[in-house]
Computed example of a mutant assay.
Amino acid sequence: MTTTDIRLIGPHQFLPVRLALVPQGTGLHRIDGAWWPRSRHLAAELPSLLHALGPRWGRITRVTVDHAMWNVGPRRLTLGLRTIHVSRAAGMGHRHTVCLLSLGTGRCDLLVVPPDTPPDRAGRMLAIASRVDGATGPWTSPTGSRPQAVPT
């Protein structure tokens, strides 16, 4: 069974987002921060993330995720009057990333900390991914090893 569209009608309850971003005005970065969703249900997690990123990245219209990270979900997500296109790619660079595109603003790439990551490790991953110097360490990868595909 494949879900192609999800339409959220009426007021949506936005949960607090576990998100850490590189500070604005520090130049271009290959990874703009990290996001620690509460589940692998993309349709449930994306609205809160998009709401939190709105002030910085504007109207995000396209999201690309690795298919192995998320449960089956929508190809489009409608929030109010806007539609967000969701693409699932195999091997899009690194399994634990999400790419968000905003017309006129650009691209936001986030490291996705798996939902079942222990809080202490997730906190370190969020902190490292949002460092201005872009340095990564062993905690950047959910497996505990230095990832080859996560840009520094």
Rank of each mutant, 00 (worst) to 15 (best):
T2E: 12
T2A: 09
T3Q: 13
T4F: 09
T4K: 11
I6C: 11
I6Y: 10
R7V: 10
L8S: 12
G10M: 03
Q13M: 13
Q13P: 14
F14M: 07
F14S: 09
F14I: 13
L15R: 12
L15D: 15
P16A: 14
L19H: 04
L19T: 04
A20Y: 00
A20I: 01
Q24H: 12
G25T: 06
G25V: 02
G25L: 02
T26L: 04
T26F: 04
T26Q: 07
G27F: 00
L28A: 14
L28Y: 14
R30D: 12
I31N: 04
I31W: 05
I31C: 08
D32W: 03
D32F: 09
G33F: 01
G33L: 07
A34Q: 01
W35C: 14
P37D: 01
R40N: 09
H41C: 14
L42G: 14
A43S: 15
A44E: 08
A44Y: 06
P47Q: 06
S48W: 02
S48K: 01
L49W: 02
L50P: 01
H51K: 05
A52L: 01
L53G: 01
L53V: 00
G54W: 08
P55V: 02
W57C: 06
I60T: 00
V63W: 02
V63S: 02
H67A: 15
W70A: 00
R75P: 03
R76Y: 04
L77K: 00
L77H: 00
L77C: 02
T78K: 03
L79K: 02
G80N: 03
L81E: 14
R82P: 01
R82N: 04
I84M: 01
I84Y: 00
A89K: 12
G91H: 09
M92F: 09
G93F: 04
H94P: 09
H94D: 15
H94N: 09
R95C: 11
R95A: 13
T97L: 08
V98G: 12
L100M: 03
L101I: 10
L103F: 13
L103G: 08
G104A: 15
T105A: 15
G106Y: 05
R107E: 15
C108N: 07
V113K: 13
T117E: 02
P118M: 11
P119S: 11
R121E: 11
R121A: 15
A122H: 07
G123R: 14
G123Y: 05
M125P: 10
A129D: 10
A129N: 10
V132W: 04
V132C: 07
V132E: 07
G134C: 06
A135N: 08
T136L: 08
T136P: 12
T136Q: 10
P138V: 11
T143A: 14
R146W: 08
A149Q: 04
A149N: 07
A149V: 05
A149I: 04
V150L: 06
P151Y: 04
